[in-house]
Every structure is written in structure tokens, then in C-alpha cells.
Design a protein around this nucleic acid. Structure first.
Lengths: 203, 203
DNA sequence: CGGCGCATCGTACTCAAGGACAGTATCCGG
DNA sequence: CCGGATACTGTCCTTGAGTACGATGCGCCG
């Protein structure tokens, strides 16, 4: 297997020496600045402390990400920064002073085209989706509601007028209002807008 | 480095032979059933097609996960199953017939205490949080709105009454209505509920 | 059987929302 | 200097939403 070129992008000589320790398996190239990333490179380990590092929202990241697989290394990793890095197009996020074994593993994974994020971030991601993949199975808001009330609430929460709901369910507008009154009371809200926010998980 | 024991849990002999190919680096042990997982094992590759596999919600998973690092291997991987597996306590999720190199990588990562999920699931996770962390950064809905209109729209979308918004912004309720009228017109909606759905990314 | 929950429908009332029509003041760029 | 955008305010009016105070019919369970 031919050695792949790995760009070590850091301004910190000490860190650079440390990173050079993971020498086997890679053709190492040093870059002192973000601007100095070699054009043809395909894999880079990027120090969060680089002086000229652009903000994650800067288009430079989007420009690089399609061709360059970037691992963002922070000396003080934290979840928000990690998420931002991944969102910016980085393929990995880890501790800058991690062990050579760990860094190698991260780089191997990323070089293989996968993404790497740590336990902590993954756990946070899972928690985030959990709360939005679970609802469809068990609509938490519909706890004490009856079947009919749920139908009406669902439609009201999507912005349908009472008259439309009545027509759709083949009942009177009066009945729709009746159901909604029950729904409001049971869910402890005052109007259909509050209901909508509740149903859709806002507030 | 002492070889770690890896349990290959599958009922499928063909798959078992295939998995035995990743022999180096592990002490391989075969298990034919979920019930037959060795008590002291610390790492297991589990076939999704196991006949006696309990549902992910079954307590058996929670009982195993603290001591046993499980990689769930499906012959037809899909995101929902992957998410369920991770939520059930598995440390990894991958394709059952993936290459030996790929499986080794997954197992190494998991053995190191990290979690492994594929690009696809990770991307889905990112999208899920993106939509709840990004909005503050780039409110797409506020395209043609003026600064003041945005403030009013934001509050209205959270269910505040016109009078409350007026009080909060130290203006007249009439002015709030005026701004909202502009907002409705610009966003092509009819009332504050539609506005709320738009602002919060529903519809 | 009698109570209870659920779904349905009626009339009447109050009120916030939103639109119609209009006016004043500021600031900025051609 | 004037047109245009923005912010702010006013009055009048219509309408939908929500509530109050009812009523009827049905199925279920003790």
C-alpha cells in the first residue's frame, strides 16, 4: 500500500515534533499556516491553534472539504467546537495531544473515507436525535388525549382552520371547537399556536 | 499487546467463516446464539440475523452493554436500525459482509472504547442537530425581512400576543400589527400560526 | 339499570387578529 | 431636493377563535 501524504498543519513546533512521531505509514508534510496547505493534499491534521485559522462559517472550509479530508485537532476539545468542525466539513475531531496510537486510528478511519468523532460528541448527537426520532413512535403530547382529539389537534397544529378540520373529518365546526377546548384544557395551553409549538416539540 | 478475545455471534456458518478471516490480532470464539454469549467476554461481533436476538428495547441489551462492547452487524444496514442498535448499547454498527480491513478497523475502534457508526448515520445525526443548532446562526426564513420585522416575527412565532410584543419592544400594538402585516405579506403566509410553522421549520 | 366517558351539535357572547385606509417622521442615496 | 425605504401611530371594521351554558346519543362497566 503506497504511503499517503499527510499534512501536519500547526504553528507549534513542539506539537509538530509530537505529531512527527506517528511517522510510519504516512508521508509527512509540515504546514505552518492554514493558507499554506498544499493544493493537492488529500489528508490533513489541523491544529485548532493555527494563527490564521478562518471561522468555521468561512467559505474556505467549504472549498477545501470536497477534496481534502481534514482532522481538526484541539488542545481543549469540547462538543460545540467539535460539532462546528464537523459541520464545516472536517472529517474528524480529536485531541491535539492524543497518543500516537489514537491519532493513527483517527487518521486511518478518516483516510478510509469515514468520519471520526469522539464518544462525547456522539453521545450528544444521539441524545439530540433520540428526542426527535422517538416522538413518531410515541407522541408524548398526546398522552391523555382521545383518538378524536388527537386527530383534531394534529390538524389544528398544522394550521388548518376549524372549518377545514370540520370538513375533513365530516363533522360540525362546533364539534371541532369542542374537541379543541378539551385538548387545550388537557395540555394546559391557551390557543392553537401554543398547541402547535407543543405538538412540534418547540417549547 | 495481548490478544483480546472477540466473540463472533452468528448462526450463519458462511458468515462465520468469513469473519474468521480477520483472525490476526484476536482470539476468536464462535457463538451460535445470543444466549450463548460467553459471560466474561469483552468484545463481540453480533449478527443481526441471529435467530434468538431480543428486541433492542429488551433489558438483555442493557444488561450486557456495561461490560461487553458489542458491534452490531447487519447484512442490510439502515439508519433506523443503526440508531436503535447504538441506543440499545452497542458500540458499533456496520455491514455484516464488510471487508476484513473494514471490520478490523471498526473492531479496533470499538475495542479502544470509542463508538463506531457509519457515514450515513453520522450524517443523519449531524443533520438532526444542525437543524436545531444552525437556525440561530442563519435564519433562512428571515430573508427579505427588516431587522424590526424579524424581532416581531420571532416573538409572534413563539406565541406571544401582539400586546405582549408591543410591551416588550416598547411600541404600540398597532405598530406590531403593522410589522406583522408586512411579515405575512413577505413570507406569503396568512396568520401567525403559519408564520410559526415557517419560522420553526415545519412545512 | 344507572353512571360515566366520548363524540356530536346548538346558540350566544367576548375578544384578539388582521385588513383597509391614512398619516407623520427619519434617513439615505441619486 | 425629492423619491423610497423604514419605523411608528391612529381609527374603523370584519372575522375567526375560544368560551359559557347548554343538549343528545352511544357504548361500557359495576
Amino acid at each position: 500500500m503506497k504511503k499517503q501524504t499527510l499534512v501536519l498543519a500547526t504553528h507549534d513546533d513542539q506539537l509538530a515534533r509530537r505529531w512527527h512521531a506517528l511517522g510510519e505509514g504516512w508521508t509527512l508534510v509540515r504546514a505552518n499556516r492554514f493558507d499554506a496547505l498544499p493544493a493537492g493534499a488529500t489528508l490533513a491534521l489541523i491544529d485548532a491553534a493555527l494563527p490564521d485559522l478562518p471561522a468555521f462559517t468561512h467559505p474556505a472550509w467549504a472549498k477545501l472539504s470536497p477534496t481534502l479530508r481534514m482532522v481538526f485537532a484541539s488542545s481543549q476539545p469540547n462538543d460545540p467546537e467539535g460539532l462546528a468542525a464537523i459541520n464545516a466539513g472536517c472529517s474528524g475531531y480529536c485531541h491535539a495531544f492524543a497518543s500516537a496510537e489514537h491519532l493513527s486510528q483517527v487518521l486511518n478511519v478518516v483516510a478510509a473515507g469515514e468520519l471520526w468523532v469522539g464518544r462525547s460528541i456522539l453521545a450528544r448527537l444521539l441524545r439530540a436525535v433520540e428526542s426527535r426520532t422517538a416522538p413518531p413512535a410515541a407522541p408524548a403530547w398526546a398522552g391523555p388525549l382521545t383518538e378524536r382529539e388527537r386527530e383534531v389537534a394534529q390538524r389544528a397544529a398544522l394550521g388548518e382552520a376549524n372549518a377545514d378540520i370540520a370538513a375533513a373529518l365530516a363533522i360540525t365546526e362546533r364539534t371541532v371547537k369542542s374537541h379543541l377546548t378539551s385538548v387545550f384544557e388537557k395540555l394546559g395551553v391557551n390557543d392553537r399556536l401554543q398547541l402547535a409549538l407543543r405538538v412540534h416539540g418547540i417549547k
